[in-house]
Amino acid sequence: MPEPYIRVAVAEDDRELSALDRATWSTLHAVSPEPQPPYAPFFDERHRPGDFLVAELDGTLAGYIRLAHPTPLASNAHVLQIQGFAVAEKARGQGVGRALIRAAVDEARRRGARRLTLRVLGHNTPARKLYESEGFVVEGVLPEEFLLDGAYVDDVFMGRTL
């Protein structure tokens, strides 16, 4: 099985990342409504190409992960947060997600971060297991924070020291 190639996103990835985002949308991980046409560009002022790492598998874009500061405060500048993560359905089970998380950890360290955090829905067991296997621990839970498909879902805060 080929290893995923991880790189920083470029503006030309916009259309492919937008399509990937729509194809992977699910209430398993999304709290916003399903995207509807006309589709907005993937990149904007708050979501710049340099914020994203993308994975390619056999020359095809197979996933992405976004790193951002959780707040604009200088006192919080040592923390980065995963604020977006998706793997194409056909690429799941091939190490793409794990490679993206490991690359995000490396990139966060390169940027001088001391901590990396994320939020994940309580019912997203596959993602939670992956994060835990990469050193993330549950640091807090907001019970029944979201109402998705008629069920209340916890918002789980996870983090790790770098």
Rank of each mutant, 00 (worst) to 15 (best):
S32R: 03
L80A: 11
K90N: 11
S32N: 00
Q83D: 12
L53F: 15
R111K: 15
R115K: 15
Y64V: 15
P126G: 08
D13R: 02
A103N: 11
R119T: 09
G140V: 07
R48W: 13
Y131M: 06
R66Y: 08
A30T: 01
Q94V: 09
L53A: 12
I101C: 10
T24Y: 01
E89H: 07
Q81Y: 05
L100V: 09
D51G: 14
E139A: 08
V8Q: 10
V105Y: 02
R15Y: 04
L67E: 10
E56T: 14
E16I: 11
R111Q: 15
P72A: 15
I82G: 04
V79M: 14
Y152A: 08
A30H: 03
E144N: 12
Q36F: 00
A91V: 10
F157V: 03
S26Q: 08
I101T: 06
H78K: 14
A19L: 12
R7P: 00
R160Q: 11
G59A: 13
S18R: 15
V87K: 02
A104Y: 02
F136N: 03
E107S: 12
E12K: 05
V120Y: 03
E132P: 04
R98E: 15
P70R: 13
G95H: 08
I65D: 11
M158G: 02
M1F: 01
G159D: 03
Q94G: 07
R119F: 10
G97S: 07
G63K: 08
T161D: 07
R98P: 07
V96R: 05
V54H: 04
L20K: 05
F146T: 04
L121Y: 07
E89W: 07
T27S: 08
F136W: 06
H78M: 13
P33D: 03
V141S: 02
R22M: 06
E89K: 05
A103M: 10
G112T: 12
L67P: 09
W25F: 00
V137C: 05
R15T: 13
P126E: 07
R15M: 12
H69V: 14
R128V: 02
V105I: 14
A40G: 01
R109V: 14
F85C: 13
L121H: 01
H47F: 15
A108S: 15
A86Q: 08
